[in-house]
Design a protein around this nucleic acid. Structure first.
Lengths: 185, 185
DNA sequence: GTCTATAAAGTGATAGAC
DNA sequence: GTCTATCACTTTATAGAC
């Protein structure tokens, strides 16, 4: 048996899932409340009633999942970062894609992404050697962002290969950025 | 003295410039014909009359400037690519920003970007050694894209440093990707 | 040639019927 | 508690006055 509270929670959850998918597919502006309601098997009025506004629905749908703090020796950090990259490349990070796609037109989404990236960037830079640790850490973030966008959003055909092949190429780059070493000539 | 044809050309040019700036700042959906007309010191009706539709205006405003063909030894290619990156990082590429910002929500803009990136990626991969030349070439594109987006669009604070400092870090990475060499352990 | 007025369509949000 | 009907607004695009 389903109580009314349970019923409501299920509907709310279906709406949130539908919102995540649609915001990720079409961005903020092109996703309408009507579309979300239809995919969730509900109606626009209920979506508004539950979430208050389209903005608030987006805020709940597009929260950026943080990677957690990363600690250890530079080598351990490099390994950890490469593993995190592998995870982002393997399966489409539905909820993060919503924020990524929206960030370029939705100022609040941009702040969200910037905040998340900056936090991790600083946290990592603090454990790296060299004067330009913050810059190198930023380049790691840019490389990660570029790979995720190119693979999942732009769908660049050259990157449509097994995850292992990508990490085999990107891993050494990250390691190099972490340690600050130069490659052999 | 200004003939009518000249007058028209000037107005058309002002509209195009305004469109480039606004599409770059706010993306496709959030840029209205009204905004473009206002910034160009004209009116919406004239914009429509000259360009036919908002779509066609965008198509003309957001054309991707191609880098031209790159040839030579791997070393020369790396140098060329690093120089091209430096150019994109130095001053905001206004017209490309329009396409970049719009690509995530505007399917046609996405095609435009994918087409431009794929073409260059293939052209370069053909001159690189190794089985995975196409993938490495794609990673170069992803790295470039990530850096441009992080610096100009996300405005990640760690990347707000002189261009030379960025190319000093990214240059070796590109070189490594071009040659397919591994860094020293 | 240039600009004003308006049409047609779609949006987020709301009020109220069931 | 759920959904239908509608409001108020903004958008692109057009028709016609100057």
């Amino acid at each position: 048996m389903t109580t009314r509270a349970e019923q409501r929670k299920q509907t709310e959850s279906r709406i949130l899932t539908a919102a995540r998918e649609l915001f990720g597919e079409h961005g903020f502006d092109r996703t309408t409340v009507r579309m979300v309601a239809t995919r969730a098997g509900s109606d626009p009025g209920l979506v508004m009633r539950y979430f208050g506004s389209k903005e608030q629905l987006f805020a709940q749908a597009a929260a950026i999942p943080t990677d957690g703090t990363i600690e250890g020796t530079p080598d351990e950090i490099a390994t950890h970062l490469t593993a995190a990259l592998a995870g982002k490349l393997a399966d489409e990070p539905v909820t993060a894609l919503a924020a990524l796609r929206a960030m370029f037109t939705h100022p609040e989404a941009a702040d969200e992404v910037r905040k998340a990236m900056t936090a991790q960037q600083r946290q990592i830079a603090g454990q790296l050697p060299g004067d330009d640790a913050l810059v190198r850490s930023g380049v790691i973030g840019a490389l990660t962002l570029g790979l995720v966008i190119s693979r999942h959003l732009v769908k660049l055909d050259g990157l449509d290969v097994p995850t292992e092949q990508l990490t085999a190429i990107a891993g050494p780059l990250i390691e190099e950025l972490v340690t600050g070493s130069r490659p052999v000539e």
